[in-house]
Amino acid sequence: MKVLEDSGSSVALQLEGIDRSYANAIRRFCIAEVPSMAIDDVVILENSSVLYDEILAHRLGMVPIRTDLERYNLPEECDCGNPLGCHKCRVLFVLDAKGKDKVMTVTSGDLVSEDRDVRPVSESIPLIKLAAGQSVKLEAYARLGRGKEHAKWQPCTVATLTDGKKEGVFILTVESAGGLPAKQVVLKAIELLEKKLKEIQVAVGGPD
C-alpha cells in the first residue's frame, strides 16, 4: 500500500493485495457509513425574509460543519436516551439577524455555536439575504448522521476506485466535504467495516 497524495482535503491511496470488492466496500463506507455533523432540526422563531422556512432549513442543513467524532455520539448510539438529545449528541446553533437600512447577507459566520470547535467549515457561506426591516431568528440543532440517511451527512464528496497500472492494484481517491480530514474518513471507514464484519462473524457463530 502506498499513499499517493494526502492534502488534508483529499487522499489518494494505492491498494495492493486486496480484493476489488473489499476495496469498493471501503469506498462505499466512506460515502454512506462514516458519520459527520450537519444541522438536522431547525426551530424557526421568526422569519420575515423572502425565503420559506423549509428552504431556509434546507440551506442550513447543507452547510458542512467541522466534526469531532471523539466527543460526539450518534443520537441512536448515545446513552442519554433522550429523544431531544444531550450535550454529547447534539450541538445548538443560534441565528439572530435583522436587516438594517440596506440589503444584507446573512452568512454561516453569523451562526453562533454552543461549541467553539463545532462550527461551519467556512464563515462566508451566504444563507439568506434580508431587506431593511426583515428579520430571521432561529435555533438549529446539528447532530451526527450517516450519508445513507441524507447526503448532507456524507463526509466525502467524491470517492472513486480506479484500476492501477498493474493487475490487482487499485487507486482509492477520497475527497473530503470539509467536516473531517479525508484521511480520517478512510480510517474511520476501515474501522466501521471491520466492526460490521465482526458482527457477521459473531452472528454466524464464529470466534469472537
Binding site: I55, T157, G178
Partner: peptide, 20 residues
Amino acid sequence: MMIPIRCFTCGNLIGDKFVP
C-alpha cells in the same frame, strides 16, 4: 433564488465561492 450551498452533483461546497 440564491446560490446553492453545495454542488448538486458531487456535494462540494460552492456557496462561499460565488461572491468572489
